[in-house]
Nucleic acid binder design. Sequence first.
DNA 1: CTCCTTATTGTACGCTGTACAATTATTGTA
DNA 2: TACAATAATTGTACAGCGTACAATAAGGAG
Lengths: 200, 200
Amino acid sequence: MSRSRGPGERAGLDTAQVVAAARLVVEEEGSPALSLRAVARRLGVAPNAIYSHIGNRDRLLDAVLDDVLGEVPQPSVATVLRDPVTALRSLMLDSYDVLVRHPRLMPSYLDRQGARGVQAQRLGSITTMALDRLGLDERAAHEATRVLIVNTIGFAAFSAPPSAPGERPISAAELRRNFEQALAWLLTAIAQSGPPRSTG
Amino acid sequence: MSRSRGPGERAGLDTAQVVAAARLVVEEEGSPALSLRAVARRLGVAPNAIYSHIGNRDRLLDAVLDDVLGEVPQPSVATVLRDPVTALRSLMLDSYDVLVRHPRLMPSYLDRQGARGVQAQRLGSITTMALDRLGLDERAAHEATRVLIVNTIGFAAFSAPPSAPGERPISAAELRRNFEQALAWLLTAIAQSGPPRSTG
DNA sequence: CTCCTTATTGTACGCTGTACAATTATTGTA
DNA sequence: TACAATAATTGTACAGCGTACAATAAGGAG
């Protein structure tokens, strides 16, 4: 531990390191334990050192959220064009699986409305592309996107263990089947909402 | 202000008063400002006085959440039995409208998974009743209930103003139409998932 | 080399939840 | 009524939090 560092001496931090450390804190201690001070501790740095790299506690949270979304794999454009519904289904399932690994981060996601970082935009534009392919106009595509996002984040949020330990805490597999069901319902409705495809 | 009260002197609090004060705090200062100390201040009471009535900060939050749900009107049993789909639709719309009035409470709702208090159970059992009427078995009814709840809370959560003020913050009316659309999709799918009604 | 910007520390403030013991009011029991 | 048990409330205290401020040193620009 390099505990001895005077004011002005550099620690060689950058934003990526800060975000990475924050993710470690979240993954090992849960996201209620995500504090600037915990991150700083892990980096062997004074608490306020963080402020040079991210302005704010909220911005740190945003960065972590978006970073997590980076784990969601990218479906190929070819797949999206060939079979938009299947592409949407696996995109949402993949997103769900990633999000479920960070259950206690979910309330923050909704608070920040799905995080508006680069990763979120990446996933958003693929979604919009697939919906466009289904024949939805821009407005309808936006709305459908929101429905899918709400559903995915919402279900992921329900995977957190309940506060009262008395209640049967619904198994992860069960919840995932439930999510798949809802997703299927929504995708069917969305696909039907576009104009009927003439391409047979 | 009765600031002068020695240890042991009663303030005459009860749980309802504490919850009511907490609701006032939330409604006037936003739910991030909901602290035991703020509630205590408003009641003219020492911070730790709250602990006699609710054990915990989380439990206070739960109580507030459930209290808010109390505003959702109860559809009559006759209505539910006559037209379950319409009853479900207006129940969810009413819930949405109530929740939207407390946007910054929504992340907590998801965190506590919709709150398991008496009000939540009241709404839950009406929902289950309607779904049962549609011919869903117990398991299917539970799943459909969860889908509807996730959708409602999720959309309500999106009504909070976004953190980055640059983004166009989507009008309330627009979001509500979007919610109605999603609700219609889900209700259609759910109604079809039950066995076809033989009762003409 | 000198100047400027930037990253980092030390310190400090006010806020938070909550544990603990002391104190008094209320309730139950005889 | 007297007394004991329980419950509600305060005072005090602690560790943690986000973050503002000034001092300091390192790195880059000229």
